[in-house]
Structures are given as structure tokens and as C-alpha cells.
Amino acid sequence: MMETNSPFEQFEELRIDRISKEFLAETAKWATFLAILGFIGIALMVVAALFMLVLGASASSSASFAPLGGGAFLSIFYFIVAGFYFVPINYLYKFGSNMKNALRTNNQASLTTSFEYIKSHYKFIGILTIVMIGFYILMILWVMFTSIGSLM
């Protein structure tokens, strides 16, 4: 019986050369920088949500047309967006910090962990993109059907 080998088995002993390490080190620096900016953006979203919540509560009255009063609805929306934004930013930060650690200490476990985090980052972004495309399609269909319904 003939033995068949996967073409990917040749990568079991894949080595990272000096140039690849330089590329990975620079990528880790940029990933960390972008993650820190992302955390700052999340903090600003949370502060804005709190500001809208407090300002909306003080400005709302019993005659307010907003169902949750003042800025509460928009505040909750900002909190939810900040929560969704935190997940990929945290993965990106963990990728950068683990990659820097792996390259500094020549640690295979940290290298593998960093690649796991970048995979999770892109997987989350990919799934979120698919969900958003589905949402946009549903919104377009809803607008089309309500437009057709209003014409009849």
C-alpha cells in the first residue's frame, strides 16, 4: 500500500529567519500601537455613553418622546459598541505583546499563542463582517418592501 503524505507536513519544522523576525517585530509594534489607540477609543466611547446617560437623565422629562428617556438609548448603544470593539482590540493587543515576548525570549509557546490571538482577532472581525453584511441585506430588503407597500 502506498503511503500518501500531506503537502503541509513539510512545514512541521518551519523556521523563522532573521528577516521574518524583523517583520514580525515591526508588525507586533504596530499591532500594539493600534490596540492602545483602540483601548483609548473604547474609553472615550464609555465616557461619551456615561455623559449621555447623565446629561440625558438630567434633561429628560416625563413628556420626553424617547422611550428610555433622554440619552439612555444612545448611551446603551455606545456601551454595546464599546463591548464589541473591546474583543478584537484585546486580541490584537495580546498578539502584539505575545509576539514581542516570543521574539525577545525566543519562546515557541509565546509565538504559538501570539498566532492564536491574531487568528482569533481576524476570525472575530470576519464573523462580525458577515453579520453586518447580513444586517445590511435585511435592511435593504425591509426598505424595498416597505417602499413597495407604501406605493400600493
Rank of each mutant, 00 (worst) to 15 (best):
T112L: 13
G96W: 14
I140S: 15
I137Q: 06
S60L: 08
V46H: 07
P67W: 13
L111G: 06
F135H: 06
F115Y: 12
S75M: 11
S75D: 06
I125P: 06
A72R: 10
I40D: 02
E12N: 09
E26I: 03
I137R: 05
S6L: 07
E12L: 01
F33M: 12
S120L: 11
F51E: 01
Q108R: 10
T4A: 13
Y117V: 00
K119G: 04
L53F: 11
F39Q: 12
Y78F: 15
K29C: 03
A66M: 09
I36W: 10
A82C: 05
F84P: 00
Y136I: 14
K119N: 10
G71Q: 09
T32H: 13
L14C: 02
I118E: 05
L138W: 12
F11A: 07
F65P: 01
I16M: 07
L37Y: 13
K119Y: 14
A72D: 00
K100D: 01
G70E: 03
G56P: 04
A109S: 11
A63H: 04
S75A: 15
I118L: 09
N107A: 09
V46C: 04
F73S: 11
A43F: 14
T112P: 00
F86C: 06
K94L: 11
G83K: 08
N90I: 04
L53K: 11
T32R: 07
P88Y: 11
M139Q: 14
A72K: 10
R18K: 14
I130Y: 04
G126Y: 12
A35R: 02
L55N: 08
Q10T: 04
L53E: 03
F124G: 04
S20F: 01
Y78L: 15
F145H: 11
F86W: 09
M99C: 02
Y78K: 10
T129R: 13
G41V: 01
I36D: 06
I76L: 15
I137G: 11
T27Q: 12
A57Y: 13
G126Q: 03
L68V: 01
V131F: 12
A49V: 00
T4C: 01
A48W: 05
F145C: 05
L44V: 06
S120W: 05
V87K: 08
A109C: 00
A72W: 07
T32G: 12
T32E: 15
N5A: 14
F77D: 03
F65I: 08
V54W: 00
S114T: 08
F135I: 13
G96E: 05
M144A: 15
E3C: 03
G70M: 11
L68Q: 13
V54K: 01
F65R: 05
T113C: 02
T32V: 08
L128G: 14
S114Y: 02
Y136D: 06
F95W: 06
M99K: 04
E9P: 03
L128N: 07
L44H: 02
L37F: 15
T32I: 07
L37E: 07
Y93G: 08
T105R: 10
S64I: 00
G83N: 04
A109F: 12
F33D: 07
Y93L: 13
A59T: 04
E26G: 14
M1V: 07
E12Q: 10
F77T: 07
F124R: 00
I140W: 15
L24C: 03
L24P: 00
T112D: 12
A72I: 14
L74M: 08
L74R: 03
L50R: 01
F51A: 05
